[in-house]
Design a protein around this nucleic acid. Structure first.
Length: 259
DNA sequence: ATGGTCGAACCTCGA
């Protein structure tokens, strides 16, 4: 059986606005799997054709206006599921999982949290704990698995443009670090970090204030892999090029290669 | 400089 060797994740910030850029990127890089977040479209209106004509099967879980996740794969897709263990319908359309050529793929769009002062912040922390329970309940850390997506948390000082200024604020709060750490304790390794030690490599930059031009960004998009996958990891990149295009997503893709 | 800019959908919300 063919198994995936190139796996990518990209918060596209509206698939209908981005389908041209996504199609171009798929044609150029030919990943076996692309996980997308913030598709912002109901399933009936998803632009399937633009991706199927490139040879991809696309599984979607979306809603109108916000959130929404999708998995595009060029290999056979099985066992598609949605949601967390206690919300399999996935009212907010934040989780889609599938098995692609023997690799379990869990694609998540973690709640933003809005502000550390608001009730949405502890809800974000609880969501991450529920993700951990979902992994414990439904997945196996001794098997090939990648958990990828937009986690809305920058883990370390080297993952943010100004750790002193940002510490304790949304995306870089110790409670978020503990909550995402609990997810990693399932038995996962940050694939990009396993191969790259340097800071200043980000996956998201605010549209405002010239943040991209000045590289004021955060690394909040990750591919976390189980030990068996980490052992095969040959390459992990953040591809900044799509962020330079006209009308970009505010996030850029993260791409893994396995041997 | 607590501003600024996007996408989606209906003019404001979520990020």
């Amino acid at each position: 059986m063919f198994r995936p060797v190139k796996i990518a994740t990209w918060n596209v910030n509206g698939i209908r606005a981005r389908v041209g850029a996504v199609g171009d990127w798929l044609a150029q890089h030919r990943p076996d799997v692309l996980c997308m977040q913030e598709t912002k479209v109901v399933d009936d209106d998803f632009p399937f054709e633009e991706l199927t004509r490139l040879g991809y099967v696309v599984k979607v879980s979306g809603q109108a206006g916000y959130n929404g996740v999708a998995i595009a794969a060029s290999l056979p897709v099985n066992d598609v599921s949605t949601g967390l263990y206690d919300d399999l319908v996935d009212a907010e359309r934040r989780v889609i999982s599938a098995t692609v050529g023997g690799l379990r793929v869990v694609n998540v769009y973690v709640p933003n949290g809005k502000s550390v002062e608001l009730p949405s912040f502890p809800e974000k922390l609880r969501w991450l704990e529920r993700l951990r329970v979902t992994l414990d309940t439904r997945e196996d850390p001794t098997k090939d698995l990648v958990l990828c997506g937009d986690f809305n948390v920058a883990l370390e000082d080297r993952d943010v443009y100004d750790p002193v200024r940002l510490r304790g604020r949304l995306h870089f709060h110790p409670d978020e670090h503990r909550a995402l750490g609990r997810v990693l304790d399932f038995g996962l390794v940050d694939a990009y970090r396993a191969l790259h030690a340097e800071g200043g490599r980000f996956s998201w930059w605010d549209y405002r204030g010239g943040d991209f031009r000045n590289n004021r960004g955060l690394r909040i998009d990750y591919a976390f892999v189980t030990r068996s996958v980490a052992a095969r990891l040959s390459r992990a990149e953040i591809d900044v090029e799509p962020r330079r295009l006209p009308k970009p997503s505010d996030h850029t893709p993260v791409l893994l290669e396995l041997s």
